[in-house]
Amino acid sequence: MATRSLALILGAAAVAAVIAWGYAQDEPTAEAPPAAALGRAEGFSLMGAAPSPLRSLGPALARSVADVDHALFVEGSLRDASLDGDWGVDGQGRLQPSLALRRRFDQLLTTLGEVNLDELSSWLLDRTLRDVGPTASAEIMAVWARYITLQEQRYTTEARLDDPQTWTQALAERQRARREILGPAWAEAFYREEEDALRRQAERAGPAGSSGRAAEPTWLHPDPQLSADELHQRRVARYGAEAAERLRAEDEAEARWQARLAQAREQVRALQQAPHLSEPQRQEAVEGWITSHFDAHEQLRVRVLLGL
C-alpha cells in the first residue's frame, strides 16, 4: 500500500500493526486469560495491557538525518510513499489539534525497526523545521514526545473480543491516560473517532455488565463461510465503505504475506535438511535466501516467525 495510515485499521496494525515484532509482557497469571487482538477500525487502539517497547526497536545507531531519510524513503518501507495526514498547522502557522497529525505520527512509528526512536525523532525535528518553521516544529515535537509516552503506557485492563463489558472498562482506563498525557484537546482530536466507534460496538454487542450474550460477529477477518463479496458488503454495512476497503486491502496484503512466509518456511526447511551442505553452509544458504527474498524491514519479522 502506498501509505500506511493506522488511524482506522491496524494490521494491527498496526500497529497495526509493528506487530509481529512483539510486545513486552509480564508473565500471565492463571486468572487472566489472554486478550484478543483488536483493530482500530472498530475503535480499539492496541487494547492489550502491555506497552509497545518503542525505545528498544531498531538498530543501535546514531545516523545522520540524511542517512535516516535515505534508509526510509529510498531503501526502506516508505519508498515511493507520501506522508499520511499533515502537520496540522493552519494558515497563520499555528498548530491545531487534529487526527491528521496522529496519522502522520502513526505512519512514522511503523518504521521503528528500520530506524530507532532517537533517529526517527531527529528526522522529525529536521523535517518539521523545514516544513513549518521553528515555533510550530517545537509544538509538534512536544506532542510527539507525549504521544511516545502514551504508546509506552502500561494498562491494567485488557479488552477481550468475547466480553463487551471489558471494552468499556478498557476504554475508560485509556481515556484517562490519553487525557492526562496528551491533554484534553489533543486526546479528543487523536482518539474521538475510534472511541465513538468503540462505544457503538459495545452498544451493538449488548449493555455493559450483561452476561450470557455473545458479541455480534465483527467480520474483521476473512470468513470461510462467506464469499469475498459477501464479506465486503457486511463490512460496508457495519463499518462504512472506507473502513471496509481498508479491511479488504489488509486481507489481500495478509494473504500475500502468508504465501511468502509459507514459501520461506518450505525453502528454509529444505535447506536445513540438505544432505550435501555442512551446517555452516546451511546457515549461510538460509540467510542468503531470506535476504534475497525479503527487504530489510521484513527480514527480522521473518526470522522471528520462522524461529531462526
Rank of each mutant, 00 (worst) to 15 (best):
38 L>S: 10
40 R>V: 05
267 Q>D: 09
109 L>I: 10
118 D>P: 14
18 V>A: 15
206 G>K: 04
275 P>Y: 07
236 V>S: 00
19 I>F: 02
300 L>F: 13
270 A>M: 12
126 D>H: 12
270 A>C: 07
40 R>A: 12
110 T>V: 03
269 R>Y: 04
30 A>G: 02
110 T>Q: 03
157 T>F: 05
88 G>P: 08
159 A>R: 01
269 R>L: 08
43 G>W: 08
253 A>C: 07
308 L>S: 06
198 L>Q: 00
134 P>K: 04
177 A>R: 05
196 D>H: 00
285 A>E: 07
13 A>Q: 09
39 G>C: 06
28 P>Q: 07
252 E>A: 15
101 L>K: 05
233 Q>A: 10
61 L>V: 13
225 Q>R: 07
172 A>F: 02
160 R>Q: 09
151 Q>M: 15
237 A>G: 13
36 A>L: 00
90 D>Q: 04
191 Y>C: 12
294 F>T: 09
62 A>R: 04
146 R>Q: 11
245 E>W: 01
189 A>F: 01
157 T>P: 04
69 D>H: 02
112 L>H: 02
37 A>M: 08
29 T>H: 03
112 L>V: 03
291 T>Q: 13
188 E>D: 13
178 R>F: 13
4 R>A: 06
237 A>M: 09
24 A>K: 14
155 Y>I: 06
308 L>A: 07
144 W>H: 12
57 L>H: 12
35 A>Y: 03
239 Y>D: 13
205 A>Y: 01
268 V>K: 09
